[in-house]
């Protein structure tokens, strides 16, 4: 299953490092990253593949919610399907 992570929050050093570190721990493979800073705010959309992950999607959501609190950004992790449904015909 492919997932989409959206990360929004105040910019600081090390957000991508922390996120990719956690992804690696879960054995989730990054496919695409799109990141920019808008008016001091960090915006990132990351698409990844969970097919060989060592956690379930619920566990991953919990891990990333905790990480988000730790580094002060909001991290949402969802199945790619909802975006496919809404934006692809």
């Amino acid at each position: 299953m492919r997932i989409v992570l959206t990360i929004v929050g105040k910019d600081k050093v090390g957000i991508i490092a922390a996120v990719s570190q956690t992804l690696a721990e879960c054995n989730i493979n990054i496919i695409n990253i799109n990141q920019n800073i808008m008016q001091g705010f960090f915006n990132m959309v990351l698409i990844a593949d969970m097919s060989n992950a060592n956690v379930t999607i619920k566990e991953a959501q919990k891990k990333f919610a905790e990480l988000g609190r730790e580094i002060g950004v909001e991290i949402r992790l969802q199945s790619e399907e909802i975006f496919t449904a809404m934006h692809r015909i």
Binding site: V4, T6, I31, N32, N34, N43, V45, I47, I82, F83, T84, M86, H87, R88
Partner: peptide, 11 residues
């Protein structure tokens, strides 16, 4: 399939 960032943020 990759997505436009704006689409994702819109959702």
């Amino acid at each position: 399939m990759l997505f436009n960032t704006n689409d994702i943020l819109e959702t």
